[in-house]
Simulated assay, not measured.
Amino acid sequence: MLILGIESSCDETGIALFDTNKGLLAHELYSQIDVHADYGGVVPELASRDHVRKTIPLIKKVMADANIAKDDIDGIAYTSGPGLVGALMVGACIGRSLAFAWDIPAVPVHHMEGHLLAPMLEDDTPAFPFIALLVSGGHTQLVEVKAIGDYQILGESIDDAAGEAFDKTAKLLGLDYPGGPMLAKLAESGTPGVYKFPRPMTDRPGLDFSFSGLKTAAANVIRSEGIILAGSKSTQNEDAPENVEQIKADIAYAFQEAVVDTIAIKCRRAVEQTGIKTLVIAGGVSANTELRNKLAKLMEKHKGQVYYPRHEFCTDNGAMIAYAGAQRLQKYGDRDLLIKARPRWSIEELPAI
Rank of each mutant, 00 (worst) to 15 (best):
L279G: 07
E300I: 08
V42F: 02
R269L: 02
F209C: 10
V109K: 04
Q236C: 15
D334Y: 00
G226P: 14
K185P: 02
V259M: 05
Q327D: 06
T169G: 08
D123T: 14
D50M: 14
P200D: 07
G138P: 06
M112F: 10
I321A: 11
I73G: 06
A270T: 04
A66H: 08
D261Y: 00
R269W: 03
S9K: 01
A64P: 04
Q327L: 12
L229S: 15
A319I: 10
I353A: 02
I94Y: 04
P178G: 05
Y39E: 06
V285Q: 06
T262F: 05
M1Q: 00
V244I: 15
G304H: 12
G325E: 05
I68L: 10
A99S: 00
L350H: 00
R344G: 01
Q327H: 14
C314Q: 09
T79I: 10
L338T: 13
N237I: 14
R268T: 03
Y323K: 13
P119V: 07
S212I: 05
G41K: 11
G155C: 05
T262V: 01
I339K: 00
D123W: 02
I73W: 07
A240Q: 09
P343L: 07
K22S: 12
I15T: 03
V271M: 09
A162W: 03
K331T: 12
P44M: 03
F18T: 03
T169N: 05
K331R: 12
R328E: 11
G137S: 09
D74Y: 11
I276Q: 03
T315G: 08
G83N: 11
P181H: 09
P82D: 12
G304K: 09
A258M: 04
A322S: 12
L133M: 09
K22P: 04
L46R: 09
L173C: 07
A319P: 10
F211Y: 11
V259Q: 04
V143A: 05
P241E: 10
D203I: 05
D203G: 10
D316I: 11
L116K: 02
D239T: 15
T202V: 11
D65I: 12
P105Y: 00
E312R: 13
D71P: 07
H51S: 09
S224A: 15
I153K: 12
G41S: 13
C93S: 13
G114T: 05
G138R: 07
K297S: 15
G75C: 08
V145I: 10
F18K: 01
I251P: 00
Y195C: 06
K301H: 13
D159F: 08
I222R: 07
L279S: 08
I347V: 12
G180W: 10
T235F: 11
D159I: 04
L98P: 02
S232V: 13
V43M: 08
L117P: 07
V306T: 15
L298F: 07
G190R: 06
D334P: 01
V42R: 05
K266D: 00
A147D: 15
T274A: 06
K54N: 13
S48T: 15
N21R: 14
Y177Q: 07
E164G: 04
G5Q: 02
D19R: 02
H139C: 04
L338I: 11
A92H: 00
G190Y: 04
G190E: 03
T169R: 01
G149W: 01
E12L: 04
F211I: 11
M201R: 14
G149K: 01
